[in-house]
Design a protein around this nucleic acid. Structure first.
Lengths: 342, 342
DNA sequence: CTGAAAGCGCTTACAG
DNA sequence: CTGAAAGCGCTTACAG
């Protein structure tokens, strides 16, 4: 049903080799031939079969697999924008793969295998579950893989992200410069190697550095979603008579949204009663009232740098340089943090 | 470098035909052979080349192209979730394609061609720019295409969405049942066939139906983003002494976020001073304070129904039934609409 | 500038 | 149960 290069050749009265040339290297055939071919292509509504092209061509097109835990996540759009633009610009195809089972394990292995079978030349991985256990599996893949927004325990892989510890430190410092001394922390699970532990550590470091008081009840750790933030703030508020917190650092913006909502629901105001600083700078963070002051992660840039490195590594394996690449971040000031003299 | 079926055959000391069988129809070869093959596969780290498989196999795997205007849009995640789950369950591959140039035209054509070349068997289209002009191009594709969250002027294509007119009518009715009589409308561009015109019409119909007062200045139409909502509410507020509005219907949630922010920035409160009802029910809409009361679109279901119909149509073209399929929606009540006796 | 032919990595009747 | 061979739709030296 779909016409092939054979049909075009017959229709134009020439060989398939010439048709192929007319299509891919127009200047290698005569003008007349080229036009005959184009006409035939038009009439037959011919579309070259990519599969066949790829199979026969020497100069293999390169394609990369993107493995992402959760497409609905609020940062995915930004990240993907960076990835897709630079991939397209360099003519590399993208195979997207979502990890369905968030718990990782099998799911990641499947994803890796799937990508391999699809014939990708490299993989961009954004899962936080890349632990040592995967080293063997990954090296067996014989494919370059680079990490974005993730961290690799044994640092065998290049990873692109921001310096979470430093950024968290800075976020708390920001609070301090605004006069806050009693600061609560809403953290992800301390066993989470990206949004959990390092962001907690950075924040805690700052509290120690500035020699601020810190009571057990100033820290609540657990999930990283809206509901978790809501519940965490609830606990923080309950302990306020003993902690006296005036501000809170949250490990993610979503956590901050939940926390802010809880503050409101308690009849309190942000930032007058409780200041909040988040982490991520999702595209929606400015839409809230008050706008959320937060650490801005350069999601798009991380995507760009990540694929770029990957593509280089694909073209020349020697370019594959393990290690963690920290991208610049900054704090965007909006309205969720008040100045206080307290 | 990558091992092929040839290598496996040699390694196992049998023919490639048998290797192929051992891999695809394990029960068609002897146990011993199967094990030899598996062992060779393991040792050589063999992965079948999907391209070659697809090219040679009779029973073509089916894959669908998804064309979406903007991956960063807040509803994409939900929509894609529905699409990808049902596609995967039925073993169909997805080729994602974002329309870069929002203005449509060339971009849509390119996307269509791209998908065709990739060898997809059908296309799921979520662009709002599908006007009559494309009928020819689409029919030339000789591929089934179904629309989601979109509308097709000449209704030659199946389209899955909610009934925007009816839903908008209901949203305004909701306001009326809460005692509101003077209602503002923030609409998308009236020339937008999905979120613009129909949602305006539905809202206006309700205002007429309930014989409510309606002054020119009760309507602001234009964009559909946050900033547009902010500006629109500004105008609405400025005209409040003559319109006396107590509530506003917005054509999208993003518009509602902008509008709510403007209300706050004016020192007013939602819903006490101005009630707001949105349209979409994005996953973030409940995170705001107050939570946004809004028309809930079943994005995931729309995705599910859309691909399902598409896959049916691919398997049996007779199943392709043009027309608009309306999915159920509902209004989710949160806290942005107040009861009033005014 | 053009054509015949080999080859890309598989699958699948067809024989045996 | 297994193998030889044709074929999927292209590309690309190699001749001419």
């Amino acid at each position: 049903m779909m016409s092939t290069i054979q049909d075009v050749a017959k229709h134009a009265g020439i060989s398939i080799a010439t048709v192929s040339r007319a299509l891919n290297n127009p200047d290698k055939v005569s003008t007349e031939t080229r036009e005959r071919v184009m006409e035939a292509v038009r009439q037959l509504e011919y579309y070259p079969n990519e599969k066949a092209k790829l199979l026969s061509s020497k100069t293999k097109e390169i394609s990369v697999g993107i493995i992402i835990p959760y497409i609905s996540s609020y940062y995915f759009g930004e990240l993907y924008k960076g990835i897709s633009r630079t991939a397209k610009a360099q003519n590399v195809r993208i195979v997207l793969h979502e990890l369905h089972d968030e718990s990782g394990e099998q799911s990641l292995m499947d994803a890796l295998t799937f990508c391999k079978q699809q014939g990708v030349s490299g993989i961009l991985l954004s899962s936080q579950f890349v632990e040592k256990d995967y080293d063997l599996a990954i090296s067996r893949l014989k494919l370059p893989v680079v990490l974005v927004l993730a961290h690799h325990e044994s640092a065998m892989l290049p990873a692109f992200k921001i310096d979470d510890i430093k950024a968290s430190f800075d976020a708390v410092s920001y609070l301090v410069t605004r006069g806050h001394k009693r600061i609560g922390i809403i953290s992800g699970s301390l066993s989470n190697p990206v949004v959990g532990e390092p962001r907690y550590i950075g924040a805690k470091n700052a509290i120690d550095f500035y020699q601020l008081p810190f009571h057990d009840k100033q820290l609540v750790s657990g999930g990283i979603r809206f509901e978790d933030g809501y519940k965490a703030m609830n606990e923080l508020l309950a302990a306020r008579d003993i902690t006296g917190i005036t501000a809170v650092f949250t490990a993610t913006d979503e956590l901050a949204f939940g926390a802010m909502k809880r503050v409101r629901d308690a009849g309190l105001r942000v930032p007058e009663d409780i200041s909040v600083i988040g982490f991520d700078n999702l595209s929606i963070s400015g839409m809230f009232s008050p706008g959320l002051t937060t650490v801005s992660q350069p999601f798009a840039d991380i995507g760009v740098e990540g694929v770029n490195h990957l593509i280089q590594a694909i073209k020349n394996p020697a370019e594959m340089k393990p290690g963690t690449y920290y991208l610049p971040y900054n704090i965007v000031e909006r309205e969720s943090v008040a100045q206080t003299s307290d």
